[in-house]
């Protein structure tokens, strides 16, 4: 029983990182319908920005902020410079996926050629351990959980209580209708990429904080559980992604108590398949698969 409770605690840490990443991933998809498979590459790059700031003497908060700012800026630039021109030329969903994969490969290889095939560690201690019943958390893990909770609450407040949040939800529901109702959808889309990128950057930095070391492929190798969490919650649904992250994070840790740990990722996908069989649009999704890309 104590191992089960401990696994829940460990799962919460994984879920917190996943939530930051999956909510950012799905928020942008919900507004634009672009499957941004370069997301993992941007996460990695944000981790390296945090590393550079830390090496220059920056503290934890500054490193997190730098990663977040980089993630936001990089995502906006990625959309404006690379993806939007394709959308304006009428590229289809499949074509855009190929473009996104290409960008992802270019980012990973660009990082590899610029940084090299080595391993890096952020110079921040995990801090002392705290026992909450059978659960054990380091100071750094509590920071990661806290950061994720704050980010989720802030996003909830933004979407629920602000005009721009309502505009984002309107654009996500029907961009053409929203534009007809006077919503500046272009700015909304930029903002969606920006917020998605900030969350992507935060996820990248928290991921490399949680890992002892990272390299140029770390973010990309984390993309599969991110997509699993987003799809599980319902593609395009930020609240669904939070729930999906929790399920995937907990399942990956708790499952190791009953099966060989090498299959823990498969467990998350088994859950995903079962959920999609019962509810094909995911736990919370109302998004239709037939929507067009929005630039």
């Amino acid at each position: 029983m104590s191992q089960f409770l401990a696994s829940i605690g460990f799962g919460l840490v994984t879920a917190s990182i996943l939530a930051l990443a999956a909510v950012g991933f799905t928020l942008q998809f919900g507004v634009t319908n672009v499957l941004n498979l370069a997301y993992g590459g941007v996460m990695t790059a944000a981790g390296f920005v945090a590393y550079a700031v830390a090496q220059a003497g920056g503290g934890l908060a500054l490193s997190l902020a730098a990663g977040a700012v980089f993630g936001g800026a990089a995502s906006v630039v990625l959309n404006r410079v690379v993806l939007s021109p394709f959308i304006r030329r009428g590229i289809g969903v499949f074509g855009m996926i190929v473009v996104a994969i290409s960008v992802s490969v270019m980012i990973d290889n660009g990082l590899l050629s610029f940084i090299g095939p080595s391993f890096f560690s952020l110079p921040f201690s995990q801090g002392r351990s705290f026992h909450l019943g059978s659960m054990i958390f380091t100071t750094m893990e509590l920071v990661i959980i806290g950061l994720s909770v704050v980010a989720m609450l802030a996003l909830h407040a933004l979407l629920r209580y602000t005009r721009i949040g309502k505009a984002m939800r309107a654009t996500a529901a029907d961009a053409v209708l929203a534009r007809g109702c006077g919503v500046a959808t272009g700015r909304v889309i930029d903002l969606a990429w920006l917020i998605s990128g900030v969350l992507c950057g935060l996820a990248g930095v928290t991921l490399v904080l949680n890992l002892a070391t990272f390299d140029t492929t770390t973010g990309t190798s984390f993309l599969v559980p991110i997509i699993a969490a987003a799809v599980l919650g319902g593609v395009g649904q930020p609240y669904g992604a939070m729930l999906g992250a929790l399920v995937v994070g907990l399942a990956s840790q708790i499952s190791t108590l009953v099966i060989q740990p090498e299959y823990n990722t498969a467990v998350a996908f088994v859950i995903l398949i079962i959920v999609l069989l019962v509810r094909p649009t995911g736990i919370l999704s109302e998004i239709a698969a037939s929507r067009e890309l929005t630039a």
């Binding site: 994984t14 840790q253 090498e262 990722t265």
Partner: peptide
Amino acid sequence: NLAIAYDQSSYRSEIEQILS
């Protein structure tokens, strides 16, 4: 005797099993 997948974000549950 644990077989694990590489490059996961955490192995805490597995380590807890080992330590117990």
